[in-house]
């Protein structure tokens, strides 16, 4: 193996940053894909794969992708929830791969809601 020189360590670190970021749980936004039985049947797996592929392609490494169960509104699946740090969560419904592209470029990258696909803002009331 080639011996490292001063400065090379940072290059290795930056290369594995994606891995370490995931474990540091430091991110500016979280995208939750709802993957209950209803979501999976409606195609949420493709949605999830699409999200991960776009983030990868656009080299976005400070957004976490996670999954959760059914959000309760089964007829509007596939659904995702986008939570940008410091802002209320946003639920998008009736998603397709094209709509995902738009949500990521508009909401995640530019910070603007994609109003036409928004189902709801905020979260439910819990005890």
């Amino acid at each position: 193996m080639k011996k490292l020189k001063v400065g090379d360590l940072k290059k290795i670190r930056d290369k594995v940053q994606k891995t370490t970021n995931l474990r540091k749980s430091q991110s500016r936004a979280v995208i939750t894909v709802h993957m209950g039985t209803c979501g999976i049947a409606a195609g949420s797996r493709q949605i999830l794969t699409r999200i991960m592929a776009i983030l990868e392609k656009k080299k976005i490494d400070d957004v976490l992708v996670t999954t959760s169960g059914c959000a309760g509104f089964c007829s509007r699946e596939p659904m995702i929830t986008v939570e940008v740090k410091g802002e209320p969560p946003v639920k998008y419904g009736d998603l397709t791969e094209q709509r995902i592209d738009k949500i990521i470029s508009q909401h995640i990258i530019q910070g603007n809601l994609v109003k036409e696909f928004v189902l709801a803002l905020g979260s439910e009331r819990t005890y």
Partner: peptide, 18 residues
């Protein structure tokens, strides 16, 4: 070792040395 470097490993040593 790459994972250790990924969490800023060996950077203190580099700093001390350089």
């Amino acid at each position: 070792i790459d994972e250790y470097i990924g969490f800023d490993g060996y950077l203190a040593m580099e700093k001390a040395l350089a």
